[in-house]
């Protein structure tokens, strides 16, 4: 007994901090993947370097990393196709962000309404289910015919692409709400609006954020299509116009820039999630 007590007194020694433990998470809850991802990136870069160094692939198909880096600096300095690099980037970012803001401010309320209201669901279900599996390139000609070749048609195209995942995830968020939580709030005297504000919205928030993240991803992948429409600015335009001259190195520069922004955005969304829904998976 005394022995047990003595061996158990380790923790009370101030110099010897107790070993802090926590529940084993399921899946990837908060596990550090950064170093692994970094190593993978370096490995891919090394593979790229080796493949081009030993000319396993013709340079027209796959430029060397050095060429791409040089081209990046050149584009940074002199611009490309009559606009500076920053003008290309900001044109694309402006389109993506305006589309994201519009898609979120329409998609979230509409999705919530569709999860809660028979009429909203009935009216909007058919058009949304009809249009959202369509590839944006398929309705791109219609956008041009209806809305012209200005900014509007590009932003509308991106908005349409981002809207569906946001709206569907908001609906799913409402559906995932446990009925006991609703009943608990009602028996505490919640009004309809209070129920929505304090129970439905926070419960749906994790799903909404996931939908936003997917939506932004879809937005980036639609960007090149949107900038096919008689654009003179934009990363997508830069890539398309470079491909016409078989300037693979510029194509790579463009792809790299999109990748960096998409990655930064995704990371930002993850921070936002950690800040807004820290309870996710803990209830």
């Amino acid at each position: 007994m005394t022995d047990l007590a003595r061996s158990g007194s380790r923790a009370s020694d101030p110099a010897d901090r107790p070993k802090i433990v926590r529940l084993h998470p399921f899946g990837l809850d908060g596990a550090r993947t950064g170093p692994i991802s970094l190593a993978t990136a370096l490995l891919l870069l090394a593979a790229w370097f080796l493949v081009t160094h030993y000319r396993l692939v013709p340079p027209l198909f796959l430029p060397t990393p050095q060429e791409v880096a040089t081209q990046f600096l050149a584009v940074l300095e002199d611009g490309y196709a009559g606009a500076t690099l920053w003008e290309h980037v900001s044109a694309s970012l402006f389109r993506i962000f305006s589309a994201a803001v519009i898609a979120a401010s329409l998609g979230i309320p509409l999705g919530l309404a569709m999860g809660l209201n028979r009429w909203a669901k009935g009216v909007f279900d058919t058009p949304i289910e009809f249009y959202w599996p369509l590839p944006p390139l398929a309705y791109l000609p219609l956008m041009i015919i209806w809305l012209g070749i200005g900014e509007v048609s590009k932003i509308v195209l991106l908005t349409l692409a981002m809207f569906a995942p946001v709206c569907l995830s908001a609906q799913a968020g409402v559906r995932s709400l446990p009925i006991e939580r609703v009943n608990a709030a009602l028996s505490l005297g919640a009004s309809r609006w209070q129920l929505f504000r304090t129970i439905v919205l926070p419960s749906a928030l994790p799903e909404i954020l996931t939908g936003l993240r997917i939506g932004i991803g879809v937005g980036w992948s639609t960007l090149v299509a949107a900038e096919l429409i008689a654009a003179t600015r934009g990363i997508g335009f830069m890539i398309m116009s470079a491909s016409h001259f078989l300037a693979t190195d510029v194509v790579f520069v463009g792809i790299g820039i999109i990748a960096v922004f998409a990655f930064a955005f995704s990371y930002g969304m993850r921070l936002l999630e950690a800040w807004l829904v820290p309870w996710k998976g803990k209830s």
Binding site: E180, N183, A185, L188, G189, A190, S191, P278
Partner: peptide, 29 residues
């Protein structure tokens, strides 16, 4: 309604609110 308080078998506390805010939920309403 708030005239009948219910304690559920499954816990129905709000995971995003502190204990004090959970207790005071009905007062907030």
């Amino acid at each position: 309604g708030a005239d009948r308080g219910v304690v559920f078998q499954k816990d129905t506390l709000l995971p995003w609110s502190s204990v004090a805010d959970n207790v005071a939920l009905g007062l907030r309403f």
